[in-house]
């Protein structure tokens, strides 16, 4: 309950503290909502509370995918992100690919990135991009995306290591790099992001099984806890798969309305009625997430908590626990659970 209260205070604001303090997060779901969702498993959108106070020592970032349309809706999402940043600043944004549709040129960069996110850029927020199938390779050279000419790269914030991958072209050299880099990571949290989802209930594309076959063994073996992808133009939180929580956030510019498979057993929560982005707050052993719509409504939220590492002598790195793979000193440190609020 303490953590719930902390999250409420930090992210949802004073009004939410009362609600959490009395009844917990589930009470928030009854707050008057935005548009009705078409997905049974989706939480009803609800207004995002205002005036939270900043947490100290946490890593906060936003997530956008398939954003670079240059359309009004992208600007709306960007405005909602700026509003969120005004309530609770985040230091970076990870981009899940399809950052600039329709070709790469100066005019496109301005209208599909620099203008919509100007308030965030002016506030010093840094964007870290991964490449989608609609992105030009020249994006690697663009300073605003912090790719440093690389297709795949890693960076660190506090106790979080981020791994940006190029899922368009998962060749041997990238897999070798990823294994080496994950192996060397000592961060508490390992977060991977790339364009194509290993798990998705999107009707247009769905799960990328070929990519999953190449990537998933590494993600599991080296303890990646959370993966963000786009490509399907919906928001989806996938039920933890082999100890990893997957998010699809491919509706920050594009949208395929009603495209989530309503019968999918993968979906923990989803939203396919409007554009969305995510806010993430990582503090110590807990990662809080929110998915927020273009109209600033909260469409999903929850937390992921790390399990305490098991004794190295007690179990092998691959031992299953009721909540996924249990970690050892050298093995994967799986998260204990995912709770939606």
């Amino acid at each position: 309950m303490f953590m719930l209260r902390t999250f409420c205070r930090n992210v949802l604001g004073a009004a939410a503290i009362i609600a959490c303090g009395v009844t917990g997060f589930h009470a928030l779901q009854s707050v008057p909502t935005g548009p009705t969702t078409a997905i049974a498993s989706v939480q009803s959108p609800r207004p995002v509370a205002t005036q939270p106070t900043a947490a100290i020592g946490s890593v906060r970032f936003a997530v956008i995918g398939d954003s670079g349309t240059g359309d009004t809706e992208q600007y709306d999402v960007a405005a909602a992100m700026a509003a969120s940043h005004g309530r609770l600043p985040f230091e970076l944004v990870i981009m899940l690919g399809d950052n600039v549709y329709g070709g790469w040129n100066r005019k496109a960069v301005i209208s599909k990135f620099e203008l919509p996110y100007k308030p965030l850029l002016d506030a010093g927020v840094q964007f870290y991009a991964s490449l989608g199938n609609h992105d030009a390779s020249a994006e690697r050279s663009y300073g605003g995306f912090h790719m440093d000419e690389q297709r795949y790269y890693t960076f660190t914030r506090s106790n979080v290591d981020f791994f940006a991958l190029d899922s368009n072209y998962m060749d041997r050299s990238q897999l070798t790099w990823l294994e080496r880099t994950l192996q060397a990571s000592r961060a508490t949290w390992k977060i991977a992001f790339f364009h194509h989802p290993l798990y998705s209930s999107g009707g247009r594309h769905g799960s990328e099984k070929d990519l999953r076959g190449a990537l998933e063994p590494l993600l599991i073996r080296y303890g990646v806890q959370v993966v963000f992808s786009g490509h399907d133009h919906v928001y989806e939180r996938v039920k933890p798969q082999r100890g990893i929580t997957y998010f699809v956030c491919g509706s920050s510019g594009e949208l395929r309305r009603g495209n989530l498979d309503k019968r999918s057993a993968l979906t923990a929560a989803g939203f396919d009625l409007d554009r969305a982005f995510m806010l993430i707050d990582v503090a110590d052993d807990t990662l809080h997430f929110q998915a927020i719509s273009r109209t600033n409504a909260l469409v999903d939220s929850g937390r992921i908590t790390l399990a305490a590492p098991a004794s190295p002598a007690a179990s092998s790195p691959w031992q299953e626990s009721p909540h996924g793979l249990r970690g050892t000193e050298n093995g994967p440190q799986r998260h204990r659970d995912t709770e939606n609020h």
Binding site: G103, N133, S167, Y169, M170, R172, L215
Partner: peptide
């Protein structure tokens, strides 16, 4: 401006 087709990872290997 055309998208690049994703290459199947299994094939690339």
């Amino acid at each position: 401006g055309d998208p690049v087709a994703t290459m199947p990872a299994g094939l690339l290997l």
